[in-house]
Amino acid sequence: MQKKDNVTLFVQCIVDTMYPEVAESMVDVLEGLGLHVDCPTEQTCCGQPAFNAGHQQVARAAAEKFITIFEGAQTIVSPSGSCVNMVRNHYQDLFKDDPAMLARVKAIGERTFEFTEYIVDVLGVEDVGARFNGKVTYHASCHLNRFLHIDRQPRALLANISDMTLVEMKDADKCCGFGGTFAVKFSEISEALVEDKVNNIIASGADVVAGCDMGCLMNIEGMLSRKQSPVKVMHIAELLAGKSYE
């Protein structure tokens, strides 16, 4: 177990601008675990939207900014598997022809952790003492599950929340159809996918769908809301921080 000390927040832009309460919950949980949290407030976006759309020049510029901001940080923690995948894996693709930068992004990637991965794998904690009264189903987001191979960690943390009932939805690890700009460019396909996801969530009987990526949850929430479903989306940090849903 690593020494409990400083962690630096790397806040996904979607969380920063649309779901700030998620980052606040993350701070509550980390501080509750005895950590000192800091947050460089000049951060914006890791560049993933540009990278996924093929605009590697633009993504490289975003990555350079990220590196400048975070290079001094000892441990970087983010509430998004997708963003961590970008920093840990794709930054290396972006700088594969630049050995000096490659070394830097590799080093920073090794210090960047997804929130649940950090708690379970680095801190060795699987029970943060949270309590939640309700029925929750877990959406295993793609980049987290398939690219970072993080699945056990969030499930372990969820399983230890007291009073909570965890129900498994059908195809929990199937893509929700978000895919960044895909959701807008190929909206018909994206909608068809999120419709299945939402139907599976509703069929599970859960009050809440939880996950580790607000990109997916934003997509899911968008359709739940259009369907006027009472099911709420919550980032796992909110559940672990003991937030209730209204």
Binding site: A183, V184, E195, G222
Partner: peptide, 11 residues
């Protein structure tokens, strides 16, 4: 395209 069948969380 996003809002054909979905809503979006505002800023």
């Amino acid at each position: 395209g996003w809002t054909n069948n979905r809503n979006l969380k505002p800023l």
